[in-house]
């Protein structure tokens, strides 16, 4: 059997809120193989964002373990974690670009963090902008771009550090269906050419369908079902998976109508 590249064991995370505690994750275990495009799907509040944020420790779990390439992230010191994070890319629903910097500077930013010399930074950034089809926007500011273009900049930025893992936290949720499709195509081609292991968090079945090889269905902080996309789409066992498929079908019907 292949060994897992990303492995989480028994993750739990509880938030204390005003009206009692919220258990975002209840003993979640998952393994993602190298080169997988692994989807995590669930309705809002299912705990999927918390889960992905635990993979680079933006969020620290209350208990459990997070292994990346055999290394337990939770045992790393501050500085080691900081360096490891440079190779774990993340893109976000709201893009999170530096609004006061132009596109080129945004793509250069991760390389600046790593201390890459300015000339090399710019060369590489232009190369990446070409890859995402935005070489003519290098001097533009994020406020001048559309949502899809902003996400492309974020993708160019995340590739600047040549990550071995890419985490996508609802990366297409702020985009319209057509733009979503182009962004997913871009991610797919990046996966195929650069061999990056991807974890994709979404609430939309069509995102999973479009791009993922495996999927885990998350509901109320636990994994309901996990396996190949075709298997779960054709023979959903859990209530949560059935419900998500139903939502997709209704949406498709609405699209047709």
């Amino acid at each position: 059997m292949e060994t897992a590249y990303i492995e989480v064991r028994n993750l739990t995370k509880t938030y204390s809120a005003k009206n009692g505690n919220v258990e975002a994750l209840k003993s979640v275990s998952l393994s993602v193989l190298k080169n997988d495009i692994f989807g995590v799907i669930g309705l809002s509040g299912a705990g999927k964002s918390t889960l992905v944020r635990c993979l680079n420790l933006l969020e620290r779990p209350d208990s459990g373990e997070v292994f990346i390439g055999g290394q337990n992230l939770l045992t790393l010191g501050r500085e080691q974690l900081r360096l490891r994070r440079q190779k774990i890319g993340m893109i976000f629903q709201h893009f999170n670009l530096l609004e006061q910097q132009n596109v080129l500077a945004n793509v250069c930013f991760p390389m600046e963090i790593r201390g890459v010399p300015v000339r090399q930074r710019k060369e590489k950034a232009m190369e990446l902008l070409k890859k995402v089809g935005l070489e003519d926007k290098a001097g533009a500011y994020p406020s001048q771009l559309s949502g899809g273009q902003k996400q492309r900049v974020a993708i160019a930025r995340v590739l600047a550090n040549e990550p071995d893992i890419l985490l996508c936290d609802e990366a297409t949720s702020a985009l319209d269906p057509e733009t979503t499709k182009t962004i997913l195509d871009l991610l797919k081609s990046i996966h195929d050419t650069m061999g990056i292991t991807m974890v994709i968090i979404t609430h939309e079945m069509r995102v999973i369908q479009e791009i993922c090889t495996k999927v885990a269905v998350l509901d109320q902080g636990t994994v309901q079902e996990c396996g190949s996309v075709t298997k779960i789409f054709n023979h959903p066992k859990s209530k949560a998976a059935k419900r998500l498929l139903l939502i997709r079908d209704t949406e498709e019907m609405a699209d047709v109508g």
Partner: peptide, 12 residues
């Protein structure tokens, strides 16, 4: 969000 993005990039 921007601060988190920087943290996720391993910024000091």
């Amino acid at each position: 969000g921007v601060i988190e993005a920087a943290v996720s990039m391993g910024a000091r």
